[in-house]
Design a protein around this nucleic acid. Sequence first.
RNA 1: GCUCCCUUAGCUCAGUUGGUUAGAGCGGCGGACUGUUAAUCCGUAGGUCCAAGGUUCAAGUCCUUGAGGGAGCGCCA
Length: 482
Amino acid sequence: MQRIKISEILRSEPVNTTVLVKGWVKAFRNNQFIALNDGSTANNLQVVVDFEQIDPATLERIKFGAAIGARGQLIESQGKGQKVEIKASEIIVYGDCNPEEFPLQPKRQTLEFLREKAHLRFRTNTFSAVFRVRHALAFAVHKFFNDRGFYYLHTPIITASDAEGAGEMFSVTTLPLDNPPRTESGEIDFSQDFFRRPTNLTVSGQLEAELGAMALGDVYTFGPTFRAENSNTTRHLAEFWMIEPEVAFNDLHDNMNLAEDMLRYVISYALEHCGDDLRILEERLLEEEKSKPQDQRSEMALTDKLRFVIDNDFVRLTYTEAIDILKNSNPNKKGKFQFPVEGWGTDLQSEHERYLVEKHFKKPVILTNYPADIKAFYMRQDEPKAGVPGQTVSAMDILFPGIGEIVGGSQREERLDKLQTRMREMHISEEELYWYLDTRRFGACPHAGFGLGFERLVLFVTGMTNIRDVIAFPRYPGSAEF
RNA sequence: GCUCCCUUAGCUCAGUUGGUUAGAGCGGCGGACUGUUAAUCCGUAGGUCCAAGGUUCAAGUCCUUGAGGGAGCGCCA
């Protein structure tokens, strides 16, 4: 007999047919009612024991966490709280779960504890909800781009380029670490390494995506990304997933529109398809915030916050305008900022970004046209503009409340001479990036793209607060368990 | 990398100014229960107070160092 998923059963009418379900025991009440979950939905199916047909030895084995199958009639529930239930005439225990040894308990456990039990935390309501939402968001990303005629490009994970400037890299080698071959001058001889040259894990697929965009037009990458930075925060991982669209003939405004449309689309998708999971996550957040002082609680419940983001345009302003707002802001005048906003040209501190997003505008903000000196070499240089004291580039960062920077992107510098000048200024090797410069030599065109940190998106949508809780097995300094 | 905080039962925590035998809730275990919804009720076991060193008549409590965890900052997505 074919098993039916619980999500399907819960949608169906009580038809009095015999069905087979399989899943894990979430609760066993009154020695009679099993709450069964198979991961297909946040909701449990109530399995009612038929005492005439199920022997007591089997009932003894129905413990929290055990894997069981139940066969019986699908009937209208005689109790409140659910439409249908199964009157089980047969129960098979596939896997016992000894409650004296099983670390999870049918009670609230802290996220910190569960983080150390990451191999088991899928089995909690919170984490199964998080990972269903994560899936939905990933699927929605692909659907969004596919529906718009983008091609999914797989850029390399191992890269020889160390000139991307996006942070410290993990090296990839097969040379013996204890005794690597040396050249005559004593350097490590990478010509004897697997790739005959030094290689690293990628920090970005952008440069390669640009190559694809120069023929395919609209492309995006969605893959793992590695940063060997010693970052110890709730929003950084050493291994994370990044989405990087790159579009030929797009300018900065097209780029902003694309990013905003995409964020709005995937959040809508989650709201539409993950209602039960978001309800669980919203309740979790409410419960968690009860222990916080009033002024540190969210102003909106999770799903209200998501709807708010969908229903309102993001605020767009230039770096120069942001500096003006910050300079004249109350916290700056009263000396409340740890880093006072002094003048044009320095990068914004996270307290400044938080002020703009969480206090001043109270909605997502797109900051554009940053000073060239604090941005990457490949960003397109702007024409001088009245009221702007220095050289800027067509960059954009999207800032979300509670998350900070969720998207970073730009229109790319397509003019060969300007790109080369900038590379020289920033000491980036033209020889090594000859292939990148070739795109500017042969049929160059304006183009733009951005990087979206997928886990930061999942953080925002699930209302979780630590990025280590929205990826199954997080990698961060000092930690690569499982 | 920097700053601050935490570590007491399986889990979440309380533990007064340094003072007798370290407590609670939940969970576990034993029992009751044929309409429960984190079921309920009765009973019961469970402790290297993170580790090492120090101060003291006396340390869960104070000091030093270390380990593990968390939050904030920087780097960024």
